[in-house]
Simulated scan of single mutants.
Amino acid sequence: MIVLTADSASELFNAACQAVLLNGRAVCPRDMVTTEVMGAHLCLTNPRRRLVAIPPARVINPAFAVAEALWILSGSDDPWIFDFNANLRRYADDGVLQGAYGPRIRRWGGGIDQLDAVVRKLSSDRDSRQAVIQIHDPSRDHRGYRDVPCTLGYRFFIRQGRLVMHTSMRSQDLWLGFPYDIFATTLLQELMAGWLGVEVGEYHHHVDSLHLYAENAAAAAECLQHQPEVTEMQPISVAWPHLDAVLTQVLSSGSGLPDGDPWNAFGRVLAGYRAWKAGDRDQARKLAHDTPGPLGTALTAWYDHLTPAALTVGHLS
C-alpha cells in the first residue's frame, strides 16, 4: 500500500512512478508484463493543477485530455473521440466503446442523470454521505466486451465549505491512463463545486492495482531525472442548467464563447488539434499559440513532441 500527497498532478505522477518502480511486483494479466502496487491512495491538494507535464520524458496530449473530459461530461459514447485518440478503436465493439463513462453518468439505465442526483443530494443535505456516482455496471461489464471501465465510482463530500472528491478504481495504468483520468475527474470536481456554491477541496484517487506496463517502465524511470512542471488552470464554471448547451458550443470549436473564457480555450484546443490531424500544421500551431494559459503551452509542447516522431505508432494521436 502506498499513500502519496502532492500539490500538483505532475508531482503526484512523478511520486507514483517512483513508488511503483521501487515497491512494485511483476504480474502478467492477459500475458502482459506489468510492475504493480496493490493498494494506492494518491491525494491531490490543488485540483486545478491537473495537467501532468514532465518534459521531455512525459508530455501528454492536452487535446485528448479536454476531448475525453467533455465526451464524458456530455454523456456521449459517440465515435468522434477516436479523432483525438485513434488507439481507442482497438477497444471498441462494433465501433462503440461499451465501457464509455458518459452514458453511465448521464443516463444510467437509460434515464438517471447521476450528476443531477448528486447536485440535488448535496443541495438538500450538505453533510450527506450518499453523493455517489456509479460507473461499474455488472449487467454490462461481465459480457466480454473489450472495454471494461477501470473506474468503479466517484463520491463527493462537502466538508468545511469545500467539495472533496474520492475516486475508486479497480485498475490504473499509471503511464497512459493516470494523466488523462485525473484531468477529467478534477474538472468534474471543480464544476460540481461550482454547482453547489462551495470551494474545491482535496481530490483523492484510490487504486487497487496501480501499475506500469513493461514497455513504459524505462520512460517512467526517466521521469525521475526531470523536474515536474507545475501549472494551474484558470477557474472554470458553468451554471448546472446550462452545462449541455455550453458543451455543445465547445465541441463546435468554441463558437460564440468570449475570448478569455476557459471554455473558449477548450474549444480552441479541440479546433487546433483537428487542424493538426487534417494536415494544417501552421493553423494548428497558431491556434495553440493563441490559446491562453497552460493548455496552449501544453498543446505546443505536444506538437513539438510529435514532430520528430512523424506521428509514429504509439503516440496518443
Rank of each mutant, 00 (worst) to 15 (best):
H205K: 10
P258V: 07
D78Y: 00
G95S: 12
G293H: 07
Q283R: 08
V207P: 14
G197I: 01
A15C: 08
A100L: 14
A265R: 05
T167K: 04
A26S: 15
Y101S: 10
T312C: 11
D31C: 05
G111A: 05
V238F: 08
M38G: 11
L210S: 09
A69S: 14
S317W: 11
H242S: 15
Q189P: 01
G109S: 12
G24V: 02
A271Y: 00
G279M: 03
D304W: 01
H242K: 15
R155W: 01
S209G: 10
Q18H: 09
E36G: 03
A278C: 02
T185H: 05
P79Q: 04
L251D: 11
P62K: 08
V250C: 08
M38S: 12
V238M: 13
L21Q: 09
L152V: 06
R120H: 08
S8M: 02
A275Y: 02
Y145F: 12
P179W: 00
K121M: 10
I133W: 00
R274L: 08
V230N: 09
R162T: 12
K286W: 05
L73R: 06
T45K: 10
V164N: 05
S123C: 07
R90F: 05
L295M: 07
L270Y: 01
D93F: 00
L247C: 15
L295Y: 04
N85R: 10
L88E: 09
F157D: 12
P47H: 01
A271L: 09
L42H: 02
E232Q: 14
C43M: 13
C17V: 04
L224N: 07
P103F: 06
G24I: 03
S124A: 15
L51H: 08
V59P: 03
H206T: 01
G256M: 15
P262G: 07
R49S: 12
P47A: 08
G194P: 14
A92E: 02
G24F: 06
P262M: 12
A86Y: 04
A65T: 01
L316Y: 03
L187H: 06
R155S: 13
W195E: 05
D304F: 07
L196P: 04
D141Y: 00
L187T: 11
G153C: 09
C28K: 11
E202W: 11
E202H: 13
H204N: 10
N264C: 15
P228W: 02
H166Q: 13
H205A: 09
I135Y: 01
Y145R: 12
N85Y: 13
T291H: 11
G267I: 00
T300Q: 15
D280Q: 00
V313R: 14
T307R: 03
L42K: 06
L188G: 02
A67C: 10
N14G: 15
Q283F: 02
V3F: 10
A16H: 06
A19Y: 06
L243S: 08
W175R: 03
G177Q: 13
F156Y: 15
E229F: 08
Q18V: 05
A218R: 08
L22R: 15
P62E: 06
W71I: 03
D259Y: 02
F266E: 07
A26Y: 04
E199N: 05
S209H: 02
G314E: 01
F13L: 14
S171W: 00
